[in-house]
């Protein structure tokens, strides 16, 4: 008799768990909510992103709430339309490739915060899209995003510390070293990208001279419409190999 009661309890518990699980799955965020949230972001690949989310919703354990929260965080960020779309495309392509977005979601929030901060993240997003196209593991891509975000902040802070400033759009240029934001952002992005490529290619952070040469080569090879020669001269005068070693070390620690 006791055994029967115990058995009944176990079956009841199993059914309860099954019921809760089923209810949880069906109580997932409906696609219409994603559709509505995406409508707030002007973009060309909205349909594709929504289709990828629909595929994701059909998978067990899909982090629908978190993804919707990310879309809500991205939508009101002023400007940066391409970057916002690229963040969402990163998730869409991951889903299309049949991979899970779990490890990528926290990076999505980090990228959104960086966007709010005014960091130039276009290069990071292109690197992530490249990784997905290569079929690289998502965890590796997520690690790359973290490293590149650190490098962006380090380079930006390095330039600030050397008196190279970012003049907001519409404000008068108070000093010759306060560069218009587009020019400042290009310097930051190109330097950070060079250091990142160097490290990912197996370079050692202690070889500051080598990193400095790579940065100098990159900046000198870029056309004037991307980086102006006077900005290249300014930045190369004010930073040196030890600074770039510090920047590289920060990314690795």
């Amino acid at each position: 008799m006791k055994r029967d009661v115990g058995r009944s309890c176990r079956i009841g518990l199993f059914l309860t768990i099954l019921l809760i699980g089923t209810l949880g799955a069906t109580a997932q965020v409906p696609l219409a909510e994603f559709d509505q949230a995406l409508d707030a972001i002007p973009m060309t690949s909205g349909d594709r992103i929504l289709a990828a989310i629909e595929v994701g919703l059909s998978r067990p354990g899909f982090p629908a709430d978190s993804l919707l929260a990310l879309i809500h965080q991205i939508a009101p960020i002023p400007g940066a339309m391409e970057e916002k779309e690229s963040i969402l495309l990163m998730f869409a392509r991951t889903l299309e490739s049949g991979q899970s977005i779990d490890s990528l979601l926290p990076k999505g929030f980090e990228l959104a915060s960086a966007l709010e901060e005014g960091l130039p993240i276009e290069g990071i997003l292109l690197e992530a899209l490249k990784g997905i196209a290569q079929g690289s593991p998502i965890s590796m891509i997520a690690g790359g995003i973290t490293q590149r975000l650190i490098l962006l902040r380090e380079v930006r802070d390095l330039l600030f510390s050397r008196g190279i400033l970012r003049a907001a759009a519409g404000f008068p240029q108070t000093t010759p070293t306060a560069l218009p934001e587009e020019r400042f952002d290009q310097l930051v992005e190109q330097i950070a990208d060079t250091v990142s490529d160097y490290l990912e290619g197996g370079g050692l952070p202690f070889k500051g001279e080598e990193i400095y040469t790579l940065v100098s080569d990159r900046l000198h090879r870029l056309p004037e419409s991307v980086v102006q020669p006077e900005d290249v001269g300014l930045v190369l005068d004010r930073i040196g190999p030890p600074d770039l070693t510090q920047v590289a070390l920060a990314a690795l620690t």
């Binding site: 990784g131 590796m140 891509i141 290619g201 000198h220 090879r221 870029l222 056309p223 991307v226």
Partner: peptide, 16 residues
């Protein structure tokens, strides 16, 4: 450049 363990090519278009 070598990222994520694979090589990619680079071209500079325009000056340089």
């Amino acid at each position: 450049v070598r990222t994520f363990g694979q090589y990619s090519s680079v071209r500079y278009v325009g000056q340089g």
